[in-house]
Amino acid sequence: MPHFIMDCSQSVLESHKEEFIIEQVHLIAYSTGLFDEGDIKVRINPFKKFIVGNKTDDFIHVFTHIMQGRTTEQKADLSKMVVTMLTTMFPDITNIAMNISDFEKATYCNRTML
Results as ranks from 00 to 15, higher is better:
Val42Phe: 07
Ala97Cys: 09
Val82Phe: 03
Asn54Ala: 15
Met81Arg: 14
Lys48Phe: 09
Asp102Ala: 15
Leu114Lys: 00
Met67Thr: 07
Phe47Trp: 08
Met1Trp: 01
Cys109Glu: 03
Ser101His: 11
Pro46Glu: 00
Gly53Cys: 02
Tyr30Val: 10
Asp102Tyr: 06
Asn45Ser: 13
Tyr30Gly: 11
Val83Gly: 02
Thr72Trp: 03
Ile93Trp: 00
Val83Ile: 01
Glu73Phe: 09
Ser101Gly: 13
Arg70Ser: 09
Asn45Gln: 14
Lys75Gly: 10
Gly33Met: 04
Leu34Gly: 04
Ile51Gly: 08
Ile28Thr: 08
Asn110Ser: 15
Tyr108Trp: 02
Glu73Asn: 09
Pro2His: 04
Asn99Gln: 10
Lys17Phe: 13
His61Gly: 05
Lys41Ser: 11
Lys49Ser: 07
Phe90Asp: 02
Asp102Gln: 14
Phe103Lys: 06
Gly38Ser: 00
Phe103Leu: 12
Asp77Lys: 08
His26Tyr: 00
Cys8Ser: 09
Val62Glu: 04
Ile100Leu: 03
Ile93Asn: 02
Gln68Ile: 09
Ile60Cys: 08
Met113Val: 01
Lys55Gln: 08
Arg111Met: 00
Asn110Arg: 11
Glu23Asn: 03
Arg70Ala: 12
Lys80Val: 15
Leu78Lys: 06
Asp92Trp: 00
Gln10Ala: 11
Lys48Met: 11
Glu18His: 03
Ala29Lys: 04
Ile40Met: 06
Gln68Ser: 14
Val82Met: 10
Val62Gly: 06
Pro2Cys: 07
Val12Gly: 09
Phe47Glu: 00
Ile60Tyr: 10
Pro2Tyr: 01
His61Val: 10
Val52Glu: 13
His16Tyr: 10
Lys49Glu: 12
Ala97Gln: 10
Tyr108Glu: 01
Met85Ile: 13
Asn110Trp: 03
Gln68Asn: 13
His26Ser: 05
Asn95Lys: 10
Leu13Arg: 02
Met89His: 03
Ile100Ser: 00
Ser31Tyr: 02
Arg70Gly: 05
Met113Asn: 11
Lys105Arg: 13
Lys80Asn: 12
Thr94Glu: 07
Ala97Arg: 12
Asn54Lys: 09
His26Pro: 11
Lys41Asn: 06
Ile22Thr: 11
Glu73Arg: 10
Met6Ser: 12
Gln68Val: 15
His26Lys: 01
Phe63Cys: 07
His16Val: 14
His16Asp: 06
Asp7Gly: 00
Tyr30Thr: 10
Phe50Tyr: 11
Gln74Thr: 13
Met67Pro: 00
Glu18Thr: 06
Leu114Glu: 00
Glu23Ile: 15
Glu23Lys: 12
Phe63Leu: 06
Met1Cys: 11
Pro46Asn: 07
Phe4Ala: 11
His3Leu: 02
Gly69His: 05
Phe90Cys: 09
Ile93Met: 04
Thr84Ile: 03
Gly38Gln: 03
Lys55Leu: 07
Gly33Leu: 08
Met98Gly: 11
